[in-house]
Amino acid sequence: MAYSDKVLDHYNNPRNVGSFAKDDANVGTGVVGAPECGDVMKLQLKITDDGVIEDAKFKTFGCGSAIASSSYVTELVKGKKIDEAMAIKNTLIVKELNLPPVKIHCSVLAEDAIKAAISDWKKRRGAASPAAPADKAQQG
């Protein structure tokens, strides 16, 4: 199977690889996996108090498409408000990276990682400041 040029570019020069401190109140961490193939993806978002994603980092252990999907997503979410980021669909990633059908699950994983990171941020902020009650809708 041939990877598209964009996948190869993100795979060979992944953007924003790394981590933020997990306990930073402004950082949301999402760890998701694809149990069928054992791929694991960690996405961390640094989010301002008014809900704008100012930075993103990822670490992904898996195939080229999984690495490219998460690398692309870190670029995509920067500067977005959290509700805009929550609305990102995997189909956009598929289209942008030109992923073949067998690799669509990698884009789903990246979409899930964004959602997991944002709900982690919401949950932790709820827990951190007693003034703002935890957002129950984001749990579970």
Binding site: V32, E36, L109
Partner: peptide, 8 residues
């Protein structure tokens, strides 16, 4: 296996 089972 992956239905409702993405979080590691």
């Amino acid at each position: 296996l992956s239905d409702d089972n993405k979080s590691v």
